[in-house]
């Protein structure tokens, strides 16, 4: 099981993202494969924490890299490739979430859990040898995801980028196209909401 890393890849031993973009535009497809390898883990994390579903995340991740590849000729380098592709991932995820929200009324009861939220698709991260810990961890995971899904998509995004991926306020502001102040206030509100719904786990 790999753990998401918020740190940028080690650029000392290879070309920069912008150099890889330039090589891709010249027709070197190996360069784009390298960009995919650099960003797949982090973008997977962003999309997954917004959708809470691995199958949807896989589909959206493919779409994001495809969209980015097709749009590369229009990439002017005004922002870093890193910011640019994160923005694509977030916009795609938002579109998907809007569609899912509209369709929720048409979802069958089998697709919803008892709280009326879409069923969560969680990986098994439980310790193999301790069944009690395993049950507790699964319960915690479910509760965390339920609480995240109750946040608006903008609030969920700042929590994902700041608390889970470890990005700085300034980076988040660039990705989301807002001010640092907005990021901080969204984060504060989201923390308060999460604290309310996860209070029981915080007092343990």
């Amino acid at each position: 099981m790999s753990v998401e890393t918020a740190l940028p890849p080690d650029l000392e031993n290879g070309p920069t993202d912008e150099e890889l973009v330039a090589s891709t535009l010249k027709g070197d497809m190996g360069a784009y494969d390298e960009l995919i390898r650099r960003f797949q883990g982090r973008l997977y994390g962003v999309i997954y924490h917004l959708t809470s579903n691995h199958e949807d995340t896989n589909d959206l991740l493919m779409e994001v890299f495809d969209k980015a590849y097709r749009s590369l000729p229009t990439f002017r380098g005004q922002s870093s490739f890193y910011t640019w592709i994160y923005r694509i991932a977030i916009n795609r995820s938002f579109n998907f979430l809007d569609k899912r929200k509209r369709r929720q009324g048409a979802m069958s009861l089998n697709e919803l859990d008892e709280d009326g939220l879409p069923k969560l698709d969680l990986p098994d991260i439980s310790p193999q040898n301790d069944p009690n810990k395993s049950i507790m961890l699964n319960e915690l995971q479910n509760k965390l995801n339920e609480s995240m899904l109750k946040l608006s998509k903008e609030h969920r995004t700042v929590v994902t980028l700041f608390d889970i991926q470890g990005l700085a306020h300034a980076e988040i502001a660039k990705i989301m196209g807002c001010t640092e102040g907005t990021v901080r206030s969204r984060l504060h509100y989201a923390h308060k909401q999460l604290q309310k719904s996860l209070g029981i786990y915080l007092k343990k």
Partner: peptide, 22 residues
């Protein structure tokens, strides 16, 4: 709360998924 949220970092597929992704 932030410590608790870090548990979510574990929710990624295995390395094999990323090896096959390209």
């Amino acid at each position: 709360l932030q410590k608790l949220l870090r548990v979510k970092r574990l929710e990624t597929p295995g390395q094999e998924y990323f090896d096959r992704f390209v």
